[in-house]
Nucleic acid binder design. Structure first.
Length: 440
RNA sequence: GUAGCCAUAGCUCAGUUGGUUAGAGCAUCAGAUUGUGGUUCUGAGGGUCGUGGGUUCGAGCCCCAUUGGUUACCCCA
């Protein structure tokens, strides 16, 4: 049998895991700093929980689990599926545990999700998301805080990013004033592609979606507009003055930008992007999308938004939430491409000291020293086989273990260990306490 | 769902208009060196050239099919 992982899935080797864990730890630390508490949910959900939440395209990408046993033989439809994101399972969780939770409930969650997609650059069928959501609070300060949080994470990871922000209410307002209220999805999907296919491409797609010529004409000043956030808001105000929902969206954006103007974002440029749409159906207010400003990955590495009634379908109406999701695997790809892993100190995560030995007696002696070393917080290990010292040193080099202790007959007799710095080759005789002192 | 590209050793790849026994680097193992490695030198193992069929005196190379990978579209973290 030829070994291999399924399409769009990967193994992670130790070097990669150390780096991935660095990303996880960075994000987790920031999440906790902002008061988010961890939860986990099962890899699989009832299919019913997931279906209909992600739009027509999204539903197709849900990994369904084949029925088993008798149900399979009767060709019954699937009842379970792997989770597609962390937001919908979270909504289900909130409804199910509503009596135990204190609202507003701030949770973070870092788990894999699965999509039955075609893999390509930056796209996997199994990938990790790191989500932070606040549910049970309609305050726009949550949006403000999430922007700060995203800025802090990417600042810590040393990746310059652009945070794009928009509002579904503005998009709804636009659809309304151009007289195509029903076609909001088609319109937003089309203008979302502005970057990629240009104005003409967008217009062509709009025509294809049976949007009226008049509506497309009305849309032009908006698509063609270039200017500052303030200018954009001004234009929108004028354009949407007859749309209640549009005006509400502008108000929200103004508030968020006004609040954020009091804080200096350290690593991000914040941008109101009227063309930002985002596919997920459940967003109702602010929407976010983050792209790295350097590197070749053009897809987003983080995204999110506000959903006013995601818990409604599970029987808990009128609970608004807002959240963001970091795409760990894409962030990893960006950091790798930009060589951002180079300067990071992993020493606390890897072995610092290897005990090498010339025989069984020496090995046993090393074994007796290990607990004390480890209790002192030093990552240490013992070479487990009886073999030539060369091979043991090779092992240390391959694992990039910076220090070794050599124990032979002399050391056994004197109780003084040979302590060797593998980078310089220098060695000296030290007691075990001195070795510990040196490495602490 | 649509389309392009790729598939040769564990890994990265070379392989001439189709021509003898398919190569290199890295990695692995052993030796030079029985208490001192990472740099050096020597040697060894490792391949049904993705799979199946076809064309040909002859196929890693050409043709068809198939599988897997990858990239783009749709959509998305």
């Amino acid at each position: 049998m030829k070994p291999g992982t399924p399409k769009g899935t990967r193994d992670f080797s130790p070097t990669e895991m150390v780096r991935r864990n660095y990303i996880f730890d960075t994000i987790r630390t920031v999440f906790q700093r902002y008061g988010y508490a961890p939860i986990e949910t099962p890899a699989m959900e009832n299919l019913e929980t997931l279906m209909g939440k992600y739009g027509e395209e999204g539903d197709k990408l849900i990994f369904k689990i084949l029925p088993r046993g008798e149900k399979l033989q009767k060709l019954l439809p699937p009842e379970e599926a792997l989770r597609y994101d962390l937001t919908v399972p979270f909504a289900r969780y909130v409804v199910q545990h509503q009596n135990e939770l204190t609202f507003p409930f701030k949770r973070y969650q870092m788990q894999p999700v699965w999509r039955a997609d075609r893999p390509q650059k930056g796209r996997y069928r199994e990938f990790f998301q790191c989500d932070a959501d606040v549910i049970g609070s309609a305050s726009l300060l949550n949006e403000v805080e999430l922007v700060q949080l995203m800025d802090e994470v990417f600042s810590k990871l040393n990746v310059p990013v652009t945070i794009k922000i928009n509002n579904r209410k503005i998009l709804a307002g636009i659809a309304e004033v151009i007289g195509e209220k029903e076609k909001i999805v088609e319109i937003t999907v089309a203008i979302d592609k502005l970057d990629k296919i240009g104005v003409e491409g967008v217009n062509k797609e709009l025509v294809g979606k049976a949007i009226s010529t008049l509506a497309i004409e009305k849309l032009q000043p908006l698509i063609l507009f270039k200017g500052s956030t303030d200018d954009k808001l001004k234009l929108l105000k004028k354009l949407l003055e007859n749309s209640a929902i549009g005006k509400k969206g502008i108000e929200e954006m103004e508030y968020i930008f006004q609040q954020l103007s009091n804080f200096k974002l350290s690593n991000s440029s914040l941008e109101l992007d009227i063309t930002l749409a985002r596919g997920l159906n459940y967003y109702t207010g602010a929407i976010f999308e983050i792209k790295a400003r350097e590197g070749t990955l053009s897809s987003s590495i983080c995204g999110g938004g506000r959903y006013d009634d995601l818990t409604g379908v599970f029987g808990l109406p009128n609970v608004s939430g807002v959240g963001i999701s970091f795409g760990i695997d894409r962030i990893f790809d960006v950091l790798t491409e930009l060589n951002k892993f180079d300067g990071i100190d992993y020493s606390r995560l890897t072995t610092k000291l290897l005990f090498t030995h010339f025989g069984e007696g020496e090995q046993n002696y090393c074994l007796s020293l290990l607990p004390k070393v480890r209790a002192s917080g030093i990552n240490a290990e013992l070479y487990p086989d009886l073999t030539k010292i060369k091979k043991q040193f090779d092992y240390a080099n391959k694992k990039q273990i910076p220090f070794v202790v050599v124990v032979g007959g002399d050391e056994l007799q004197s109780g003084m260990l040979t302590f060797k710095d593998m980078s310089t080759g220098a060695q000296e005789k030290l007691s075990i306490d001195q070795v510990i002192e040196r490495l602490k």
